[in-house]
């Protein structure tokens, strides 16, 4: 069982950083919302508060890792220009998609939107983590600040969902492959 180096980095970008980040959303919204309902006595202990700070910092870190790896490692592979006369475009995903009107939209809309919208997420989540660390349980006392934090968290979720959805489809129609093969498991 083998996987190419580029496939592995793409999986790490999407399934590692991206999906972990998406899975963490419900927890973040739940605890931020809990401060709305319960008030400043939530989180109940310093330990809970510290754990949630760590949780939000981890989310922001995952968002940065996903966007930076996407834009500066995988995107250059995706947009590589094939040499003149190349007929097999499988190693050039962007050129492969644009070679047919049936798939060009995946680049023109999918990748063009994904490559930019994804960057809203780390900006938003860094702000959310900072505000929660700065104010902690006292955030419950600042209703408007809490609303802004929840709003930006929701936008970060939407941005990640768009980027993730198009990422999955793009990888289906024009996967980023290449580099040395990595053997994951040897058959007997």
């Amino acid at each position: 069982m083998e996987i190419s180096y580029r496939d592995m980095i793409t999986v790490l970008h999407g399934m590692g950083f991206g999906v972990l980040f998406m899975l963490a959303f419900s927890g973040a919204i739940g605890v931020i919302y809990a401060t709305t309902v319960v008030g400043p006595q939530w989180p109940r202990s310093q330990w809970d508060n510290a754990m949630f700070r760590f949780y939000l910092i981890s989310m922001a870190a995952l968002a940065w890792l996903a966007t930076i790896s996407g834009a500066y490692i995988i995107y250059p592979w995706y947009r590589a220009v094939p040499p003149a006369g190349t007929t097999d475009l499988s190693a050039y995903p962007r050129a492969l998609l644009l070679s047919s009107p049936r798939t060009a939209g995946w680049h023109d809309i999918g990748m063009e939107w994904k490559e930019h919208i994804a960057w809203f997420t780390p900006i938003a989540m860094t702000m959310v983590a900072y505000v929660f660390i700065k104010y902690g349980p006292r955030l419950a006392l600042h209703r408007q600040m809490r609303n802004a934090v929840l709003g930006f968290t929701a936008v970060a979720f939407f941005s990640t969902a768009v980027a993730g959805l198009f990422g999955a489809f793009l990888n289906k129609y024009a996967p980023v492959r290449g580099g040395p093969d990595i053997v994951l498991m040897q058959e007997k």
Binding site: T126, M127, V131, K134, Y135, R138, L141, H142, F152
Partner: peptide, 24 residues
Amino acid sequence: PIGLPTGPGAAAILAAGIGSLALG
């Protein structure tokens, strides 16, 4: 004021909006 002034939080929120707009 409730313990902490709102200024630092407001700065982070508005800056996130400015950064997002710059990106767009």
